[in-house]
Computed example of a mutant assay.
Amino acid sequence: MRLHPLTPEDHALIALARETVDAQTDAPAPGTDGIHTMGAAVRAADGRMFPGINLFHFLGGPCAELVALGHARASGARELTTIVAVGNHGRGPVGPCGRDRQILFDYHPGIRVLLPTPEGVRGVRIQELMPLAALWTPEEGVRPFDADLFTEPDED
């Protein structure tokens, strides 16, 4: 797995996610659960950043990453480059759940995900988190495995 060091723009994205969850956490006391416990932020190719906050529900509410993706799209951003999720109460960046990984892979197969690693928080392409996955699109459904999706772009 190729881990990429963080850029100043990545640190700004993490800060936005952290500010979002810190401002919106509704847990009654530190360390307790609430409805809004995860913040996320996504960066578009043009540099704009869009925050999101989760909505916990026992039926499976949307994760912060999905809310950030929706916020970006509603604001006109189509090409997204980087995403991060941050937990409340100082938990820091966390990796996306399986559902979020699949959605990121399907809709933004080139996106970088910022997550904790043994070397600290690093960026990794979503393909690295989805080994041998089959891409799904609304137009074609599940497509056959495509090895080209798992090769690093030359510009990295």
Rank of each mutant, 00 (worst) to 15 (best):
T117Y: 11
E79I: 11
R73G: 06
A133P: 07
V113Y: 05
G95N: 09
P28L: 14
F150C: 04
F105E: 00
H89Q: 12
A74H: 12
G34M: 08
L59V: 06
W136H: 13
G98E: 14
G87D: 00
R43P: 00
R73Q: 14
G39N: 08
H71F: 13
D146N: 14
F58N: 05
F145E: 02
E155Y: 15
D148T: 14
R2E: 04
L135G: 01
P118N: 10
L115Y: 02
A134P: 00
G92F: 09
V42A: 04
D154E: 15
R122Q: 15
D100T: 15
R143A: 10
H11Q: 12
V94T: 08
L135Q: 15
H36E: 04
H57Q: 10
A134R: 15
P8A: 12
L3W: 14
I126Q: 00
A44R: 01
G92V: 10
T7K: 01
V84W: 12
L80V: 05
F58E: 10
P138Q: 07
G76R: 11
L104W: 08
V113P: 01
A15L: 11
A133H: 12
I83Q: 02
D106Q: 09
I103F: 12
A17K: 08
H71R: 13
W136S: 05
P118D: 14
A74E: 14
Q24I: 02
E19N: 12
V113L: 06
P109A: 09
H89C: 06
D22Y: 09
N88K: 15
R18F: 00
R99E: 06
T82N: 00
D22I: 03
L149G: 03
G39P: 07
R48P: 00
R143Q: 15
A29V: 09
E119C: 03
Y107E: 13
L129E: 08
M130R: 15
I111C: 02
G98R: 14
E65S: 13
H57N: 11
L59K: 09
G95H: 03
R91Y: 08
L59R: 13
R78M: 07
S75C: 15
D33G: 13
L13A: 01
F105L: 07
R48H: 11
D148W: 03
V84S: 08
I103K: 11
V142C: 01
D156P: 00
L129M: 15
A74V: 00
T151S: 12
T25H: 05
L59Y: 12
L13W: 02
